[in-house]
Each structure stands twice: as structure tokens, then as C-alpha cells.
């Protein structure tokens, strides 16, 4: 079951959904529009090895926007801090963003329940596309859970700004591989 717009407003009022800052004008019939934050990170290396911590460079999106190159992955973030202990958030691009050929995530749309962050967006442009800080870039939906809930306590908890991959941690315990 997916929450309707009025239910998102109600649950936000009850404190079971956190969206900060929250603006009622950004509520849709069954989702909430989030904004693009000001910082973007790119990897210094061209070849990315998930076993190795990858160095990054941070870029502040200028007033006149930033043109994304289709050959790079850009890590951006939501302006809002969002999360819930009761509902599972799933992120989507906005239809108007998608119509520009801009991905806001790379196959990983599920946000863990109990994870409160500025969420990292995985931006990928099919053709070069210009992005602006504060633009309405995507939507989040909230879903009901079946079964006893245990909350997220993982590696990206509390993140502010974009966070690069920590996949190398998955390789730290060789017996687990």
C-alpha cells in the first residue's frame, strides 16, 4: 500500500514521516517532490574498482547551473533531510526530469526504513543536461510494511551532502565473500 498525498501530509504532521524542510506545495496525489541540493561529487578515477575506496572531488553547483557529462557518474543529494520509522521511502525521478534523459538513481531506488539523511542521488545523463541547485528533481513515495520492523543502522546513516560508495567495506571480511 502506497500513501496518498493527504496521508503524507497527515503522517508528516504526526511526526512519523520526516521531510525537512517540508512544503505542502510539493505534495503530489501519491508522492512528494524533493529538491536538488547544492553539492555534487565526482570520482577522480575513470575506472572504478568496488574493492578500493575511490577518491572524489566536490563541486558546488554554480548559480547558472552545471552541465552533466554523459560519460560520468555524479553523486548529488536531496536538499531535504528525509526518513521514516514506519514507512518505506522509494525514490523516483520526476517525469519532467526523466524526459530530459536524466537518471536520479542507478537501479537503487529503495531507502531503508529508519534511515534519516539528505539522500544521495546517483545522477546520470543520457545526453548532456544542465542541472540547477534547488530544482525539483525527483519524487519520493512512502509504502506500508508487513511484519515487525527493524530500523536501519547502516553505513550511510546521518549523511549530509552526497556520499560516495563504500562498497569496499563489503570486501573487508574475506570469509563472507
Amino acid at each position: 500500500m502506497i500513501l496518498t498525498g493527504p496521508e503524507i501530509i497527515r503522517q508528516h504532521g504526526l511526526g512519523t514521516i520526516r521531510i525537512d524542510p517540508f512544503n505542502v506545495d510539493q505534495v503530489n496525489p501519491n508522492s512528494y517532490n524533493y529538491r536538488l541540493g547544492r553539492t555534487v561529487k565526482v570520482y577522480k578515477n575513470e575506472v572504478l574498482d568496488p574493492k578500493v575506496k575511490q577518491p572524489t572531488v566536490s563541486i558546488d553547483i554554480p548559480d547558472d547551473g552545471l552541465v552533466l557529462d554523459s560519460a560520468r557518474i555524479y553523486l548529488a543529494h536531496t536538499e531535504e533531510v528525509m526518513g521514516s520509522d514506519r514507512f518505506v521511502p522509494i525514490i523516483h525521478g520526476r517525469s519532467s526530469t526523466a524526459r530530459m534523459g536524466l537518471f536520479v538513481h542507478i537501479t537503487a531506488d529503495l531507502i531503508d526504513i529508519g534511515s534519516y539523511n539528505q539522500w544521495t542521488l546517483q545522477l546520470h545523463a543520457v545526453q548532456p543536461v544542465r542541472i540547477f541547485r534547488g530544482m525539483l528533481i525527483g519524487q519520493v513515495t512512502f509504502w506500508c510494511v508487513e511484519g515487525e520492523i527493524s530500523l536501519y543502522a547502516g553505513r550511510y546513516q546521518g549523511a549530509m551532502g552526497p556520499r560516495e560508495s563504500e562498497s569496499y567495506r563489503d570486501f573487508e571480511n574475506p570469509e563472507a565473500m
Binding site: 572504478l48 568496488p50 557518474i73 537501479t107 537503487a108 546517483q122 556520499r163 560516495e164
Partner: peptide, 15 residues
């Protein structure tokens, strides 16, 4: 089925 966030952050689609 989807990718892990740590994999998506490396720009790898798994579906």
C-alpha cells in the same frame, strides 16, 4: 530486484 546503493553510487546498473 534492484542494485545496492553502494553499487549504484559507482554508476553500475544491475537491471
Amino acid at each position: 530486484l534492484m542494485g545496492r546503493p553502494s553499487i549504484g553510487r559507482l554508476g553500475l546498473f544491475v537491471q
